[in-house]
Design a protein around this nucleic acid. Structure first.
Lengths: 201, 201
DNA sequence: ATTATAAACTAACGGTGTTAGTTTGTCAAT
DNA sequence: ATTGACAAACTAACACCGTTAGTTTATAAT
């Protein structure tokens, strides 16, 4: 191909480097073009729009997160799988905060391609819970709660909302995940105690 | 005052209406000026910059959230206080998603005035936990975990990350908060069982 | 009525995303 | 080797963004 060897992958890679180094809002036609050694308008030979570019980055990010989670739980079950999943989730958020930021923005765009990619992240979470004896309804609840904790903790930690005390954050996370697991185990035991009984409190 | 009756409060109110109606990124010198019936440049008689405007909105938002949480736990203790706190938190996020969005952006700005305002939100959380017999370290952990669940659930729900199943979301939230409370109660009981013993799993 | 002042205005700057139209480089066929 | 086609760069232009400087104007106090 003529001129530079620019491909869509090259552009996406450059964009990713840019946002991880300087934040999502630093990604601009100017900064990206400069990094690639071309003029801003020339970008439009490779992308439809900056919004579309962010979309494709977000879809890539979803796949990366999904892959990381899937790899983490490989060969593990129950508590083991849950802790591995939670650690991988938190690690991803801290390793690629900008990409995670893009994932969080997906629902606001209303873009179907992106919204349809989202379940990929949920699959490994369900997988991690598959070792527990839960009804479908119970699994729906606990999958949400596990995601709540992983997302809630990782983002608050990343954004500096846990900096007021210097209590060990690893320990807080471990305790949070353990608490969820205890809840799941409790639900499981309620299940065997009396068929179809009430679950909590 | 001359011309219009514009005060800083009026401007902040208009800005808040704008972002709640059309999203944070819709707040612009153009849209805000138009809403106030003036030209964009005239805004600078009332604000220092758009960033500063967002900052003041964020500080107002922190105070609103803090007040809502404080009011919710008034006269309540322990489980009762925790559920009331959690419900108020979730209600705020859903009633004022744009203001909550601004709060989340505070740490990224590096603005000291704003960062110093943040603990206001944490105070009522500590207050809700004051009824439990916990060491300072334990209270630090559980305060983070409670905030993790309130923030994590509310944002994921708001942003549509819980829409794949139609399992009742109120029930998921209740279960999540109950699970945290159970964890706290467990920590409390470990405390009395043997002085200074290990806490969990 | 005069004056001081706050608050509006217009004009201008650089930056952002984007389109249209133009040049240029490279690759394939003759 | 020349030619031609095409992809990918370019320049020029637009509206909008935040922002500053300089100017006019309306009100409130004297």
């Amino acid at each position: 191909m003529p001129k530079h060897g620019l491909t869509k992958e090259t552009v996406l890679d450059a964009a990713e480097e840019l946002i991880e180094a300087h934040g999502v809002s630093y990604l601009t036609t100017g900064t990206l073009a400069k990094k690639l050694g071309i003029k801003p308008a020339s970008l439009y030979n490779h992308i439809e729009s900056t919004e579309q570019l962010r979309c494709e980055l977000a879809v890539r990010a979803v796949r990366m997160l999904s892959d990381a989670l899937t790899a983490a739980i490989d060969g593990r079950t129950r508590e083991d799988a849950c802790f591995a999943l939670a650690d991988a989730y938190r690690a991803f958020v801290h390793r690629s905060p900008a990409l995670y930021h893009l994932i969080l923005m997906i629902p606001m765009t209303g873009n179907d391609t992106m919204t349809n990619a989202l379940p990929d992240v949920i699959v490994p979470v369900f997988h991690a819970l598959s070792g527990f004896r839960l009804t479908e309804e119970e699994r729906n609840h606990w999958q949400r709660i596990l995601r709540t904790v992983m997302h809630g903790f990782s983002t608050q930690e990343l954004w500096g909302f846990f900096s007021h005390t210097n209590t060990d954050r690893n320990e807080t996370y471990r305790l949070a995940v353990q608490t969820v697991i205890n809840g799941i185990l409790h639900t499981e035991s309620e299940h065997t105690k009396h068929q179809g009984g009430a679950q909590n409190a």
